[in-house]
Computed example of a mutant assay.
Amino acid sequence: MPLANKRPTLAGLLLSSLCAVAAAQGSCDKPVYLTFDTGHMGVAPLIADVLARHQVKATFFLANERTKTDGGSLDAQWAPWWKARAQEGHVFGSHTFDHSYWVADLPEGRFKIRPSAGPQAGTTMTWTTAQYCEALQQSADRFKAMTGTAMAPLFRAPGGKTSPQLLAAAKSCGWAHVGWAPAGFLGDELPSQRYSNAQLLKQAVRDIRPGDILMAHLGIWSRQDPWAPAVLEPLIVGLKARGLCFATLAQHPTYQTMIKASR
């Protein structure tokens, strides 16, 4: 082949230059928003490795859930892990401190709430708006103490269970709820006997669309065949191959203004 044919064309040089500029600026024109809720934390180090390897930033929602190390996901043992994630530039929101599920609305702005962690796990209680706001803030305060970084004013109700009354209560103390797209339910809570990792991966790579918020966990007790990192890494690769890119909720059009204002 003649040497001249091996030389880069002007168009090629321009394209390479534009790609380099876009990469430097973090351009992401077909974003998806990967989020993780806390769990037993058994796969958390592996997830962090995958995210770092593929230069993906995610959003984490934090509760003090029971871990495989006989502690809580926000205890002193995990503080260095959270601090490292904060230094990497991920975004963080509240998941209530004791992973407290909304059960029902009650009159006078009160709620039936059932924590799945903490000293009152499994007990149905009546909370006021102030108590729910306190549960959201407790995770934020703990995160700030561990990392020195402020949590974004975002929360995800455990199980995604909410009501208009609960959302209004949280909004009154400055918190915005984050759900997930139907295709963004990544299935790591489902029984692996019926929903294999291969099946979940195929479905996610096929169905996820730009703008979708994706949801998984840092470990699910009931799943025998762990979803992460077995699905996470090929999912990232597969979505990038489709031309999608990853952003945090700090870049999401619904949340970016309020997150920026909170900093």
Rank of each mutant, 00 (worst) to 15 (best):
A204K: 09
D188C: 12
F155C: 00
V91I: 15
R194S: 09
R206T: 13
G179Y: 02
S192T: 10
A150N: 13
A241N: 07
L154F: 08
F61Y: 15
L201A: 06
G238F: 08
Q131F: 06
A168W: 00
L200R: 12
S16N: 09
L218R: 02
L62V: 11
H217P: 08
A104E: 06
V56K: 06
K260C: 01
H177E: 13
W221I: 14
E233H: 07
R194Y: 10
Q138F: 01
F143I: 07
F246Q: 06
T128G: 04
Q193D: 11
T257F: 01
P115W: 10
A86S: 08
T59E: 07
K30P: 00
L235M: 13
Q55Y: 02
I113E: 03
M125I: 04
S17Q: 12
R66V: 09
H54Y: 06
H54E: 14
P45L: 05
R7P: 00
D207G: 00
A24P: 00
Q131C: 07
H177A: 15
S100R: 09
Q193K: 15
A135P: 06
P158Q: 13
G160N: 01
R7Y: 03
D188I: 12
I208A: 05
D98R: 01
A169Y: 01
F92V: 10
S172T: 09
Y195H: 15
D188L: 13
S94T: 09
W78K: 11
M41T: 05
V205T: 14
L154N: 11
S94M: 08
R206D: 13
F185R: 14
L18A: 13
F92C: 13
V50W: 07
M41K: 06
Q193A: 14
G243M: 00
N197G: 14
H95R: 05
P2S: 12
L18Q: 12
A135T: 10
L3P: 02
L15W: 04
Q138W: 03
R206C: 00
A117W: 08
H40P: 02
F61S: 05
P182G: 05
